[in-house]
Each structure stands twice: as C-alpha cells, then as structure tokens.
Amino acid sequence: MTENSFEPKIIAFLCNWCSYAGADLAGVSRFQYPSNIRIVRVPCSGRISPPMLFSALKQGADGILVSGCHPGDCHYISGNLFARRRFALFKNLLEFAGIEPGRVNFTWVSASEGERFADVVSQVTEAVRQLGPFNRF
C-alpha cells in the first residue's frame, strides 16, 4: 500500500448541538468533504473522556477528531470549557508519550459553520493521511 492510496479511518466525536448540526449543514449545503470520518454523536464535548479516545485508537482508528460548540456557546453553558482544559492537557500528554501531534485533533464547529466543518474534515483527513496508518498500538 503506497502512502497515497492509504485511506485513514477517522472517528469524529461531535457534540449534538453545534458540531453535529454543523456536519448536517455541510451535507445540506453540499460542501464536499472526504468520507473517511465515522461520526459518533455525543451530547456535549464535555462528555468525551480520554478512555473513549483510546478505545477508538486501539480498535483501529488512524485519527480522531473531537468537535464541540465554540467557547461561550455550549448548550449546557460550560461543558466545552471544562472539555477545553481536559483536551489541552490530554493532547499534550499524548504527544509527550510519542503519539504524533496530528492524530488526535480538537476543534470547535458551530451549527452554522457547515463550511468550516468541511474544511476541518478535509484538512484533518489529509494530515492523518500524511501520517500514515496508526501503528503505535
């Protein structure tokens, strides 16, 4: 398998209120993005805990995308703000242990940002494609 023909599997954890709706809008608006992502809808980005991300990686994901509402827009007021602290530390810890920086990604996509969603997915997919299959574990 050459580098170019590698199609990464990316698990996207999207919050129900913003990012999932953003993904929906991207579809409705016909913004194209790669089909490499598998979406898991969660109530809030604050719901995402590191064990879930490890599960995805262990079960064969090559990359991960977590997306929630922009700070200040959380449906539950502060879920994404707690999540932001968690993700900041978690991403650093993963990189510290040698997981490549582009594997696990966090972003904010609002319900009106269909285009941003498509951009994020395209660019994350491309970055993971460049990294190649995840074989750390």
């Binding site: 913004f31 700070p71 993700f87 972003t107 285009e115 951009d119 994020v120 395209s122 660019q123």
Partner: peptide, 13 residues
C-alpha cells in the same frame, strides 16, 4: 486554546 485545530479557510469549496 492554542491546541484547537483551526482549518485554513475555504480550501475545498
């Protein structure tokens, strides 16, 4: 929140 992924705008429109 420097770690947040910011896409380059409008690459694949």
């Amino acid at each position: 929140q420097g770690f947040i992924f910011e896409p380059k705008h409008g690459q694949k429109k």
